[in-house]
């Protein structure tokens, strides 16, 4: 499985040390994800540095006022730059928002100057455009790499049939993400899943959005979107839906019982963050990857976690 894009695209240099950007959702709604990301990163030699003063990435303000959103992004980029660190984010929307702002500020000097003027006046920070923004799963894919991940696997996940959900802002807009994966037919998450020995299955509507972006604006419409995904993933007989974003988790897992009530049905689709799977494959315990916090229980994953502990 060669990557025809790889030769063409320019991937800026990144270090093995990152400022960990938790965002708003993960640290209060997806502690399982955060826990699994931290422990797997440590085991794979990726150093994640906490920056307490990070605030909102700016995503919610894009609909309200462009400049305010850009200033919130620039503030976070400046905080990471002050530490001399690239940003590694857990939330796809945060990654997309920060990467998009970074792309704009790095490629338009006049915009950067205007933004810095306002940013310095309001906060005392300025951003010089020297860092990169990465999603944690992209770091696993590009920097740790599939070979090292395969080597780290000690627990066989073969027999698991998993449905990859890339979501939107992990990939798009592609310019902000250096076109690291194809938005129409992405493969990074499938490759990461198969590197663990599990099967990544095809299902209808793989590219469908979770609807999280309109949950506040129109709940019924928003919930009709994850309903379609859950319906299709259940129909495909997946053992779990594999996600990389805490807001997708809100839609598919936290809202799953509610969607089942609204549509008078039962999906019972376990939802798992990729780093949780990775950790289990590396022999970490259910607790170490936060599996007890997953709301829709997967008997298969719990059994695998039990095996992993026995071997480790």
């Amino acid at each position: 499985m060669g990557d025809p894009q790889a030769a063409k695209r320019h991937v800026p240099h990144v270090s093995g040390r990152y400022a960990l950007y938790l965002g708003c959702t993960a640290p209060v709604r997806a502690l399982n994800y955060e826990r699994a990301a931290r422990v797997t990163a440590a085991r794979l030699g990726i150093e994640l540095v906490d920056v307490n003063d990070f605030g909102c990435c700016g995503f919610p303000l894009k609909a309200v006022q462009h400049d305010a959103a850009l200033l919130l992004s620039a503030r976070n980029l400046a905080l990471a730059e002050e530490q001399g660190l690239d940003v590694c984010a857990l939330c796809s929307s945060c990654t997309g928002t920060l990467a998009e702002a970074n792309h704009a500020l790095q490629s338009d000097e006049a915009l950067r100057q205007r933004t810095n003027q306002a940013l310095e006046a309001a906060t005392g920070h300025r951003y010089n455009g020297t860092i990169q923004v990465r999603h944690f799963v992209r770091v696993l894919y590009e920097q740790v790499g599939l070979d090292r991940i395969r080597q780290a696997v000690t627990v066989d996940l073969s027999g698991l049939r998993l449905a990859a959900h890339y979501g939107c802002h992990y990939l798009k807009p592609v310019d902000a993400h250096d076109r690291f994966d194809d938005p129409e037919n992405p493969s990074s998450l499938d490759r990461l899943i198969t590197a663990l020995g599990a099967e990544s299955i095809y299902y209808e509507g793989r590219d469908q959005c979770c609807g999280g972006g309109i949950l506040g604006a129109d709940e019924n419409t928003a919930l009709a979107m994850p309903r379609l995904k859950l319906e299709r993933v259940a129909a495909a007989g997946a053992d779990a839906l594999v996600i990389v974003c805490p807001f997708c988790d809100i839609m598919y897992e936290l809202q799953q019982r509610r969607i089942e009530r609204i549509y008078d049905t039962r999906y019972n689709v376990p939802v798992v963050f990729y780093p949780q799977l990775l950790g289990l494959a590396m022999g970490l315990s259910a607790e170490e990857v936060g599996l007890p916090l997953n709301r829709v229980k997967s008997k298969k994953l719990m059994e695998i976690a039990g095996d992993g502990r026995a071997q480790g």
Binding site: L22, R35, D53, Q65, L72, A118, A122, T123
Partner: peptide, 20 residues
């Protein structure tokens, strides 16, 4: 869960909200 506590830092963000 073994995760570090977070202290809210709203001041600079409130300043951006006001300035815009």
């Amino acid at each position: 869960q073994g995760l570090p506590a977070i202290t809210e830092q709203a001041k600079e963000i409130a300043a951006i909200v006001a300035a815009t």
